[in-house]
Design a protein around this nucleic acid. Structure first.
Length: 556
DNA sequence: TGACTGCGCGCC
DNA sequence: AGGGCGCGCAGTCA
């Protein structure tokens, strides 16, 4: 298989260069063309099934798609750099040891991502070096790092999956989700009332606001302002400390019902109302921008349109074109299954041998109810320390010692400030400098009790993050492999069925009705393939719920 | 006016 | 109860 590097032509402002490269990263023959000729050139070269190497899929692929050209595979240097730079499986490589450079920043034109959630500072601030980047040299550094990795095969799989993910993200944005503005508008009008002409509240929302004001005997309260609303609630004699839904629901007062309804509908209006529809739906397609690798754990993020949080109530607007169907599939209890496979916990794998893993835990006699099984499992993966979930932990530990040990070890490593890694070698970031300072301060001879207490809290907090990282991150790898396998299988199905949506553990394919069953089979086969790719001959089943429907809300 | 933060809530 | 997100709004400060 050949590697073809695609890059700007340093000799020509509007030119691009395609260069053959060996699998050791040595450059060969070059072809220079103007960028308008690129789609034809790529289409011609694609018959040899090369792997395209470029700095950024989101930069090169959309124009190719717009010109009707698809590529089979690529190596996205920017995404792969981020993985290789941090991976503990090649932490002695030249790439890992190099000072931050142009490959470490955000994509040109994008804002610096917010610092790594949980506490302050990013580890390093890369220089805003916009100088020319040497694409072939970077490929060489990455290939060298991979061959020197302690798990080169897994890392290679991760980089391939991440890169195919970037292709899929661009293709899904290009194709879009079929979206019925009629259905959406009908739903909004039914629950909110007619769309107001000049902004302002729709009738139903206005009526609820009036009810809230009357119940509070406060005609001027601004319900949309949490502080204002909080003051009004308290002056009505209600003992609340916030305006959270959970807290309001516990009250016994006439304001409760209209206020909760108001909050629900106001949320719908602002997040997925008419202005959202106007901004994000064009020509009957919703085209969210996906951001592969946008989350530290390897999950995708989206920017704009909130595609990762389409509320159930508006999913009816996602409708297949006439003569087409939607094949919707989600992985059932993905994270527990991933944990069972990673830890080779045969007892937990046995519980997952049936379609509902939680029910399997009940039938094994570990807990009484499905709800308890779910709480216990999520508590193990998220690190519950109190509440009903924590109470169930001892039973879970006895029943599934290997699985629980794996997440406990990840948590302990995080508490010590160490790095943890996923199955394929994506590694966690180090905690921020403020974290390290505090922890160090708390260990000194004359540490203040306040610092000691705070440091313990911070350690546990980071431990919960690393505990979850290994499971969430490996689940994200499974999902990438699932999608990559599915994309390849779909190429062999007639009528060009195509992926149109992906959400952590769920995929949607828009398919001609005649091949919908064939697509559903491909979805299932791909899940089996993903399990094999990640875990080899594991005895864990990755169960799916698959539906063939006309609109998204009909999916189970 | 615009950048930024905290809150609340939608999704997995 | 615990992990990961994005977004819109209100409020604040420059």
């Amino acid at each position: 298989m050949s590697l073809l590097v695609l890059a700007d032509d340093p000799a020509r402002p509007d030119g691009v260069v395609v260069q053959e490269v060996t699998d050791r990263g040595e450059g060969g023959a070059r072809t220079a063309v103007g960028s308008s000729e690129l789609p034809d050139l790529v289409a011609a070269l694609e018959v040899t099934r090369p792997r395209w190497v470029w700095d950024d899929t989101a930069r090169w692929y959309p124009p190719l798609l717009a010109a009707g050209v698809r590529v089979e595979r690529c190596h996205d240097l920017r995404l792969c750099h981020a993985i290789v730079r941090r991976s503990a499986t090649c932490d002695g490589s030249g790439l890992a040891l190099a000072p931050p450079g142009p490959w470490d920043g955000p994509r040109p034109g994008e804002p610096e991502p917010a610092a790594l959630t949980l506490f302050d500072d990013p580890v390093h601030a890369p220089p805003a070096d916009t100088g020319e980047v040497d694409v072939v040299a970077e490929l060489g550094r990455q290939l060298a790092a991979v061959s020197g990795s302690s798990s080169p095969g897994r890392l290679r799989l991760l980089l391939a999956a991440e890169s195919i993910g970037a292709l899929i993200a661009a293709e899904m944005q290009h194709d879009g989700m079929p979206w019925s503005t009629d259905v959406h508008d009908g739903f909004l009008t039914r629950v909110l009332g007619a769309r107001p002409r000049g902004g302002g509240r729709p009738p139903r929302l206005e009526a609820l606001a009036g009810e809230v004001r009357r119940a509070l005997e406060h005609p001027s309260v601004n319900i949309d302002s949490p502080p204002d609303l909080l003051r009004a609630l308290r002056s009505a004699g209600l003992d609340v400390t916030s305006t959270r839904t959970g807290e309001i629901r516990e009250l016994d007062h006439p304001v409760v019902a209209p206020l909760l309804e108001y909050k629900k509908l106001a949320r719908l209006l602002s997040a997925n109302g008419w202005s959202w529809m106007q901004e994000w739906v064009r020509d009957g397609r919703f085209r969210p921008q996906y951001v592969p690798g946008g989350v530290v754990t390897g999950r995708w993020a989206t920017s704009g349109g909130g595609a990762l949080q389409l509320p159930a109530s508006v999913r009816a607007a996602v409708r297949a074109d006439p003569g087409w169907r939607l094949v919707v599939a989600d992985a059932a209890q993905l994270e527990p299954r991933v944990l069972a496979a990673m830890s080779r916990d045969q007892a937990m794998a046995a519980a997952g041998r049936q379609a509902d893993l939680y029910q399997g835990v009940v039938e094994a006699g570990i807990v009484e109810t499905r709800q308890e099984a779910k709480y216990a499992m999520l508590g193990a993966i998220y690190g519950a320390t109190t509440g009903p979930s924590a109470v169930l932990m001892p039973r879970l530990t006895r029943a599934y010692p290997h699985a629980v040990a794996l997440v406990e070890e990840a948590a302990r490593a995080g508490e010590r400030g160490e790095i943890v890694s996923t199955r394929l070698g994506r590694s966690s970031p180090l905690p921020g400098l403020a974290w390290q300072d505090l922890v160090q301060r708390a260990e000194s001879e004359d540490a203040r009790p306040d610092d000691v207490r705070a440091a313990r809290g911070r350690r546990r907090e980071w431990g919960r993050f690393t505990r979850n990282f290994v499971v969430q991150g490996t689940a994200a790898e499974w999902a990438l492999c699932w999608m990559a396998a599915l994309r390849r299988r779909l190429l062999a199905v007639d009528g060009r069925p195509h992926l149109i949506f992906f959400l952590h553990d769920e995929v949607m394919v828009h398919a001609p009705a005649a091949v919908a069953d064939e697509v559903a089979t491909a979805v299932r086969d791909s899940a089996v393939e993903a399990g094999r790719l990640l875990f080899g001959a594991s005895r864990v089943d990755f169960a799916l719920d698959v539906s063939i429907v006309d609109s998204y809300d009909e999916a189970s």
